[in-house]
Design a protein around this nucleic acid. Structure first.
Lengths: 145, 145
DNA sequence: TTACAAAAGGACAAAAAGGTCCTTTGGTTG
DNA sequence: CAACCAAAGGACCTTTTTGTCCTTTTGTAA
């Protein structure tokens, strides 16, 4: 569904938030290992997330990545828009010619509720809400990222 | 949502069926022009669709592509499975680690109905049903592929 | 039955995605 | 303030996707 960059970004951010909650600021090595992604590529992805202002990085001994606790929670939609644009949220999703409510493609009516559901999901869920859900599930040995 | 091959395949097949309904068998040049796709690449995509048995090709003068009228309608899901595999239909769609009802990822519950809706849509809709919808819409100058 | 139109096929090319490596920069801490 | 650790950054490589071009094959119809 998403490209690798978005996928690694999602997993990295969830892991960072989880560690922040334990008063830790994980570094690239640790993050890449835990989310099972290639280290150098993870570094590049994290770099972009810092430039986008989603997380803060600290260099030097004991450095690492963390969320600004002052900021509001990060909706999945914000992240996805930044890493792969809005193509998932607009258009008919079937690659047919430009499709809108004026000029619907043959699948427009049936696809609209699906697109709306995706939009609702990624707008309501945040990195932090995922962390809370994962924490709940962990107690029952059920949920894993 | 889909890769270019799937997209061109979808559009080509709809166009071919539309022309078949008018007792015509369009060739590569015509198809590529009408669906606004690069000719050589369209040729390659059509070649694959023939090998997959979705359509029949005729060489020589007056040649072109057509659906076997004896065959049942072609569900979008069959096409998509052939051109890009089942990754859209399985998995949690969020690129998180292996996710199933045993070991759900934090988004599993919310995403499941979306995945099911997509599955239902592409299982029920066929190339031919899209053609019928497009024909209906055309009368009202509304639908365009 | 042969000429030719049109698809098939294979080799190649460009662009984008995904990934690696090495050097530079800049905080942190002793 | 000096040393060092870890992130930043840039150059480069690989693979996949997308796209092109040219030759071969084959079916059709005059």
């Amino acid at each position: 569904m998403f490209n690798k960059e978005t996928e690694y970004a999602l997993r990295s951010l969830v892991y960072i938030q989880q560690q922040n909650d334990r008063n830790r600021r994980p570094g690239i090595m640790e993050i890449a290992r835990e989310i099972e992604a290639p280290r150098p590529f993870t570094a590049k992805v994290l770099q972009r997330l810092v430039r986008l202002g989603f997380i803060i990085s600290v260099k030097g001994i004991g450095g690492g990545f963390y969320f600004d606790p002052e900021k509001p929670e990060l909706a999945l939609k914000e992240l996805i828009l930044a890493t792969e644009g809005g193509h998932i949220f607009n258009g008919c999703g079937f690659g047919l010619k430009q499709c809108s409510s004026d000029k619907p493609c043959p699948l427009h009516e049936q696809y609209a509720p699906i697109r709306d559901a995706i939009n609702k999901l990624v707008s309501e869920e945040t990195i932090q809400s995922l962390v809370r859900k994962a924490a709940l599930g962990e107690k029952n040995h059920l949920v894993e990222l």
